[in-house]
Amino acid sequence: MERPMIRRTFIRFLFWALILYTAVSATAVLGVQFGLIPVPPRKIAAADNQAAQKGLEAHFSERAFAEQFVREYFFWTKGKESSRAERLSPFLHNNMDVQAGLDFKQADWESYARYVAAWDIKERPDRSGVIDVTVFAETILTKVGNAKMQKRVDRYMVVSIKKVGNSYLVADTPYLVAPPVPSSRQLPEGQDEKEQGEAVNEEIRSQVETFMKSFWKVYTTGEPQEIAYFQKNSTPTAGLKDILQFMDLKNLSVRKQGDVYAVTCDVQLKDLSSGAEMAYHYTFDLVREGDRWYVVRMGQGEI
């Protein structure tokens, strides 16, 4: 009799222990979910996010500082050296030349920067903390003594900067560099348009050409509901009405890829505001249902 009693007591104990564990676990989950029980933050994730944020902020500030300096650097008026030195002073450390290495006393042209933009930002590998910022500057030069004689000169300048407190200082004399150029006029492998799929016969090509010309006429003159008639999803889409006029369609290529017809073409358009003509390259995906053609995708992104 004693052993069955002990066994029943043990089973009862396990049962109530399981009930208690379930209740405590559920309460803890609800407490965390509703904020009743504080949970330590995920320090690693937070640290990563903070580091990424600081990196972005650093690039923004580095770029802004370098662009502001370059704008002031390329702004000079003959005979006003002291004014330029005063404007450059907040950017330069104490041992730098007050004109940042530029002597324009004998210059035949005066200058200002119409547009500046950072092109590249690189931290020096020597752990000096110096950052080289390459800045593009579109400058306008005005002939001294003849304000009507002007010319545009584009320049690329490397500005070496270093963090000091909450801002930066120019760490070394800025210098001009050659404009960056691509190593080749050929796009890297995988970027070129490659003909894929099978060629179509002349009848299909003629149908596509007729459809594309009709599409472009409506796309440049029609309302969104009219353009929707040409789209597979029938979604009203704003076109180029009152902006461009369709002139011609050239270099049409059509290849069949499964049920889709991949189309590339050059479209001659006229700017209605100026009368200037421009040629744009487009890619389309078309589908045919019966004797109807529809646009599925338009390469320039309007559809």
Rank of each mutant, 00 (worst) to 15 (best):
K163T: 03
Q196I: 15
E67M: 07
S183W: 00
T139N: 14
Y261R: 02
P40H: 05
E226P: 03
N251I: 06
P90D: 11
V295E: 00
M298N: 08
P174G: 02
F136Q: 08
I44V: 14
Q191R: 10
T9N: 07
A276H: 11
H93N: 11
G290A: 02
S273I: 07
W293H: 04
S111A: 14
V260I: 15
L36F: 11
L272I: 15
V70R: 03
T237V: 14
E193R: 14
V135C: 04
I131N: 03
D285P: 01
S83G: 01
T134I: 06
I204W: 07
S167V: 04
L240K: 12
A51Y: 00
L176N: 13
W216K: 03
E203F: 11
E209Y: 01
L244E: 02
V116E: 08
F91H: 00
V254E: 08
K80N: 13
V98R: 08
Q245G: 13
F246V: 10
Q207P: 01
L20H: 01
S89E: 05
V133R: 02
K80I: 01
T27Y: 07
V267C: 00
V133Q: 03
E81M: 10
S253C: 05
P125G: 01
F15T: 12
Q50Y: 02
A26F: 11
F75M: 06
R42F: 08
R84W: 04
F230G: 06
F34H: 13
K122N: 09
A147Y: 10
D285T: 10
P236F: 04
G145T: 01
R205A: 15
R12K: 08
K151I: 10
D126C: 05
L269V: 15
